[in-house]
Amino acid sequence: MRARRPEASLPVAALAVTVIAFVLVPTYTGSALTSFDVYNMFQILARLGLLTLALGLTMIAGEFDLSVVGTYAVGGMLTVQAGQQHWAWGLLAALGAGAAIGLLQGGLIARLKIPSMPVTLATYIALLGLTSALSGGLTKTYSNATVTLWVDQSLLTYFSPRSLITLGLFVVAAVVLSLSRWGRELRAIGGDRRAARVAGVGVDRLIVGTFVASGVLSALGGSLLSFSLGSANPDPGVQPLIVAAAAALLGGVSLAGGRGHPLGLLAGSLAVALLAEIVAVAAVPQYVSQLFFAGLLGIIVVIDAPDLHSALVRLRTRLRSSHHPRTSIQESADV
């Protein structure tokens, strides 16, 4: 236990703290929690979960897929534009586009060994443009109200088909990565790619596969959101990316890659969804919750920073030697 890094227990701790905060909500709002609050929390999870899973998988592999929000927007828009006749065509178009985007990016990144950040950033810009071109820059409404009602109907009191699909995909990802060798290999290429290659891991195929999975999951996330809202927004902004990144980092993946598990990502997403629901129930202004998420993300990134410890040590020695040159000498003499 002593050898485990603190990040390994981060998802459990984050989830535990937010669950306690959620249960204690009545003590500071004065009104009891209803089953609708739980249902609503799972709806928020459905909104951010698939993006978190998509981004988190690429982060475990040591990459960073900034384009998830672009794919999310394209998926949502295609669902509405191609799915006016039948919802299945829209869904198919979105998933196909997601897979194609992932294939293109993964292929470029794996074959040419380009860092994923600039590639996915360029794709993100291009995809936002594509979404805007598809819609003429306008929000498009989806006329099929039956589907809208179906995806958000309440099932088993707390769930909807949308949140169950999201939870189901987390479970599928967890089972696949735990039972097959892909889970180990994914962490291996994230931790030390060269060593993984020498050990015989099919690095290129795995990277392409990860980006395809990321593309399909983000597009599905956009699809489900469009079905739920009954419309598609050409520019979702950067907020979904920020929230997904915070959830993934709370879920125990590292910015350096090589760490993380889908169940951790689920715990991170649940923690963020619980926080968002607490903010909604307590009726805090939006900018306060923005500041809250900023603080959360800032703390995580600073804790994750490799040079922080040595910088603090240096600062301490410098402060000591400049202010109390005598004491530091005496201390060392005493020791």
Partner: peptide, 15 residues
């Protein structure tokens, strides 16, 4: 601290 600039500035943009 060698913090990751991308995630740090995402947080900063929110702040």
């Amino acid at each position: 601290a060698a913090a990751n600039p991308v995630v740090l500035t995402i947080a900063a943009s929110f702040a």
